[in-house]
Amino acid sequence: MKYLHLSVAGLALAATAASAQVPTLTVYTYDSFASDWGPGPAVEAAFEQVCGCDLRFVTAGDGAALLARLRLEGARTEADVVVGLDTALMSAARDSGLFAASGVSADYALPVDWTDDTFVPFDWGWFAFVADRGVAAPASIEALAASDISIVIQDPRSSTPGLGLLMWVRAAYGDRASEVWTALSDNIVTVTPGWSEAYGLFLEGEADAVLSYTTSPAYHRIAEGDATKTAWAFAEGNYLQIEVAAKLGSTDQGELADRFLAFLVSDAVQSVIPTTNWMYPAVMPESGLPEGFDAADERPAVSLLLDPSEAESLRREAIEEWRAALSR
């Protein structure tokens, strides 16, 4: 029954913290943001130095899990800020009515114009197929479908990159999406529930390429000194994912939450994003991108992104179309 003692000790600690009269800012974020190797520890230390507050992370599995949890908790939520929703979830997040405008903005280095007073972008990336440099890079999704390159993708019903690819095919090929999926079906080795499984399968050699991000090779180059991986930039463009943070309407720490959101797009946070979250920073840090972060051939010339409300209204139909094409 040791865990019982542990949780009692936890309650006692929480009580001590509360009695010290320091305001607590509760930030909901996804697991890997708050993990030891993510941006979380650096963000927490730096913000606590200037805010005179206690920053507390509460985590859920991924962006979709975060939004689901916030919707379950409704106005009762303890969250003041959420970090880690993305462009695919923004429409549903906005419709939930849980979020409030913060008015925070910055000189964003995003491939698209950003004007939104509620959702603050903190990093972004292009979805891309990642492969060994030895595999001849196809020029487009259609060229990939025509080749005999094998790929692993994620299920759009349970994974953000999976849904991203669905929107990518839609944005690039419009009404021909179904046809493209049919052509792709013999390239797909398998469809996994999430990113981790797909990437694991790829590293095991189960497929030539995996659906991931253009920034994935940066991890191998910088953290592992392995320059054999690359990401394919396609002629029709690669689909964007922009990760956003927002203030909860129900917060009792509104001013502190606004300060945190502004802090999130400041250099202190943006400079650690590339090598902790392995995404592009939303605001270019003074020091620029780290050495080896991206290669010229890994930067797509065109960025695809459907309007969030359009993407939301397309989703159900696109999933059904995907399922039908791949079930044949």
Binding site: T190, V191, R315
Partner: peptide, 25 residues
């Protein structure tokens, strides 16, 4: 089922439950 099934034709009810809970709320 999903990973070794090779695609959406190997979908189980649990996947549909996950989808309903997470993405469609």
């Amino acid at each position: 089922a999903l990973t070794l099934g090779g695609g959406p034709s190997a979908t189980t009810i649990e996947v549909a439950i996950y989808q309903a809970l997470r993405f469609e709320f």
